[in-house]
Design a binder for these strands. Structure first.
Length: 221
DNA sequence: GGCCAGGACACCA
DNA sequence: TGGTGTCATGGC
């Protein structure tokens, strides 16, 4: 069993199952993925609640919103001008290429869908992978700041790896399973909210000072 | 009042 | 190719 599988098992026992992403439709996942860029999820929830209140959580409805109105609705998520543009560019793309259905974009092969998402302004690798995995249920591992922080501390990562290198590490060492990738990323985020941010070592977490992972070396495994 | 949060992009050397 | 500045709100 690889280190990554062992770490997953420990996290899963401690926190799982988490069943991400907190959204009602694939399109809502994509909206959340853009809105959460460098932003606390609580702020995103406020913005999504505003969109829901305007019945604007479909590509058609979002396309009808004037830019200023959209900026006003997503204001709590921060970077509201950038994000309004990014949302409208995504909606325009779905309208022009996929009959207003994100599901059509996601029905392609993983590589084709990922390439297409990455060509859109404002959708980088993490946002694309979040959409692929959580909206499309495609086996694309999501790497985020928490992933780098946690696995850097564990000694799995050196800290100078590129996004694609980290993603490839997880995708080659783990079974190609979207359910596993989904849960793993959710567990990393859940764990880091306790272990990595609030305090250096969380007494009740599964990777505390008594755990070999917290020592920064996995050599003994 | 400062720091951080489930990034991406433009610009520059 | 890699580093830096910019975008911006809300919670702690």
């Amino acid at each position: 069993m690889t280190d990554l599988k062992i770490i997953f098992n420990r996290l899963a026992i401690a926190y799982g199952p988490l069943h991400w992403w907190p959204a009602e439709t694939p399109f809502e996942v994509a909206i959340g993925a853009i809105l959460t860029q460098n932003t606390n999820w609580k702020n995103v929830e406020m913005a999504i609640a505003n969109l829901r209140g305007e019945i604007a959580l479909t590509p058609e409805a979002l396309a009808e919103l004037p830019r200023e109105k959209l900026e006003q609705l997503i204001y709590p998520s921060g970077f509201f001008r950038q994000k309004a543009e990014r949302l409208q560019l995504l909606v325009e793309h779905l309208q022009n290429r996929h009959g207003n259905r994100l599901e059509n974009l996601l029905s392609q092969s993983l590589d084709d869908a990922r390439r297409e998402l990455l060509q859109l302004k404002g959708i980088g690798p993490e946002t694309a992978d979040s959409i692929l995995l959580y909206a499309g249920e495609l086996p694309s591992f999501v790497v985020d700041a928490y992933t780098n922080r946690l696995f850097g501390r564990l000694g799995v990562l050196q800290g100078n790896e590129s996004y694609e290198q980290v993603r490839a590490l997880f995708m080659t060492q783990l079974p190609t399973d979207p359910v596993l990738f989904n849960e793993y990323h959710a567990l990393i985020v859940q764990h880091c909210k306790c272990f990595c941010r609030k305090r250096p070592v969380c007494a009740e977490c599964c990777l505390n000072q008594d755990c070999r992972y917290a020592q920064g070396s996995l050599d003994s495994i």
